[in-house]
Nucleic acid binder design. Structure first.
Ligand SMILES: NC(=O)c1ccc[n+]([C@@H]2O[C@H](COP(=O)([O-])OP(=O)(O)OC[C@H]3O[C@@H](n4cnc5c(N)ncnc54)[C@H](O)[C@@H]3O)[C@@H](O)[C@H]2O)c1
Ligand SMILES: NC(=O)c1ccc[n+]([C@@H]2O[C@H](COP(=O)([O-])OP(=O)(O)OC[C@H]3O[C@@H](n4cnc5c(N)ncnc54)[C@H](O)[C@@H]3O)[C@@H](O)[C@H]2O)c1
Lengths: 252, 252
DNA sequence: AGGCGCTTGTGAAGGCGTGCACAAATCGCG
DNA sequence: CGCGATTTGTGCACGCCTTCACAAGCGCCT
């Protein structure tokens, strides 16, 4: 995704000191994508009463290899105790800090159709470090509607509201044809992270991150494997099963 | 334990590709994940009136590197013409065949709450090779409800209906606590591909593919980059931007 | 026919990520 | 106080993926 010169690392001790804007250890992208999964598993374990957990236990709960887990965690410093494991509460705190979840981030949602309504009503946002602070749509008949305590505003107000509410993340749930225009509006308003549900490629200036969730793509990938599995069963003397029926994360 | 139905249409290759289509080129997983994106871009180009497209043009439309695109296509025995490019219609046909989209796959949806309703009403399924043929829920007050022309059935009927309708793919949109139980039911019914929207790890036998879509994880990854960007701007003499703000697919 | 420009397909190199295997570190107990 | 059991942190090797760079192929124009 991005990259900037690695030449000389600006002496950032991964030490600790959460206090302020210390530079970041540059974590591998693959590791970052797994941290949220570890976090979720840790919350489950914590609620179940566990004080500490071994890499073996946590990796099982998160569905990954234990060596991978240890290496991931080692990237953000040593917070484990050999012979014992990891302190659940401390590790939660650390991962939340690295992910920037210690401050609740303001999110806005654009496009309140079918999917937008579901997202607006999703409580998984609030419980995982985010708060939907504004809803926008271009359809006059939708503007003014109240959803989950928020009033749908016209997209023309996005620029002003984004600044007022300090919105950092925008979620696009409009048809594909409108998505690029919406992205442009978001970028102009200073939003630097976008989650896009519309099936299209967005073009944004550098410095803005875009992640895309495309349901049809997920299904088509599954369809490929169905196709492949079907053709294997038709083969003579085929091995009965593909060895690796593994959990596959969408991320990678 | 599972398996095989799939009666109709033995191995009919589309178009003319002569020869045994039975054996599959084993495509790199990364390539498979990109094929749907190429397919979408190709459909757009086709509707825009293009007959052929160069790797440069298609890769731009799909948001990837052109060399990567060419290598991906070469893996499936590409049909480009040097000096000209790729025939749009032919390439669509080829990719759809590889992904197994030439046969419309039957999908069932379990859990008709907030998200389930949105998914049931999504027309992106039908237009991309899938058909929702059944809806299931455990809540008696939901059973019997009609959504988009389908009646919500009780999950106890899943086993029977799955066989009747030849369902290959199941979508889970229940709370996390119920997801594993639902997955077990799906597997017992012979479903070999699962798309899971619940934030939890599913355990399934080998031979069954699971893909997971977790909205909160996507947001948390964005949050990390926000955090990192914020700490960079605080650095002395910081360059204004990271160079390549690229599109990131969730799959990844 | 021949030359020229354009585009594909691919060899090769480098980077990244994964997983093994083990040394180092810590705890509990005798 | 020392020893064994346990678990972390990591060096290393391997394989996958990406990217560059270029020869080979194709069509068009002269
Ligand atoms: N419904 C689903 O389950 C689902 C699943 C996956 C992906 N998607 C994708 O999500 C997007 C939304 O799907 P949907 O089913 O909710 O569609 P929808 O048509 O129900 O809703 C789209 C909403 O966007 C609004 N809109 C249109 N142009 C706008 C603009 N320029 N600015 C602001 N708002 C605008 C419309 O007024 C409408 O309210 C689509 O791109 C779709 O492909 C939907
Ligand atoms: N709403 C969203 O936008 C959203 C976004 C991302 C992820 N999710 C996840 O998707 C899942 C569903 O979310 P939701 O908001 O629709 O929840 P919801 O509570 O509105 O709906 C859940 C539905 O599942 C049904 N259900 C419960 N147990 C069942 C069982 N054993 N068998 C069959 N059906 C059962 C319930 O009756 C209910 O209809 C959750 O795991 C949630 O975390 C939701």
């Amino acid at each position: 995704m991005s990259q900037q010169r690695h030449g000389s690392t600006p002496g950032n001790a991964p030490g600790d000191r959460a206090g302020s804007v210390t530079a970041f250890p540059d974590l591998p992208e693959a590791t970052i994508a797994r941290l949220p999964e570890y976090l979720r598993a840790l919350h489950n374990l914590g609620e179940a009463g566990a004080d500490t957990v071994s890499s073996e236990g946590l990796s099982a709960a998160a569905g990954v290899n234990s060596a991978k887990l240890r290496k991931d965690l080692s990237h953000l410093g040593s917070y484990g105790t050999r012979g014992v494991g990891y302190d659940v509460a401390l590790l939660i705190e650390q991962i939340e800090y690295v992910l920037g979840l210690d401050q609740r981030r303001a999110v806005c949602l654009v496009g309140l159709g079918n999917l937008g309504h579901a997202l607006a009503g999703y409580d998984g946002f609030a419980s995982r470090g985010f708060k939907i602070v504004a809803l926008f749509d271009a359809d006059a008949s939708k503007v003014g509607e109240e959803i989950q305590g928020l009033i749908v505003r016209h997209i023309e107000d996005l620029g002003r509201v984004a600044v007022e509410e300090n919105i950092a993340i925008g979620v696009i749930a409009t048809p594909a044809g409108a998505a690029q225009a919406v992205a442009d509006v978001l970028v102009d308003a200073g939003v630097t992270s976008i989650l896009n549900f519309a099936p299209c490629v967005l073009s944004v200036p550098s410095g803005v991150d875009v992640r895309k969730v495309d349901l049809a793509i997920e299904l088509q990938i599954l369809s490929f494997h169905e196709h492949r599995k079907a053709s294997l069963t038709a083969l003579p003397g085929g091995r009965s099963a593909a060895a690796a029926g593994n959990q596959e994360a969408v991320g990678s």
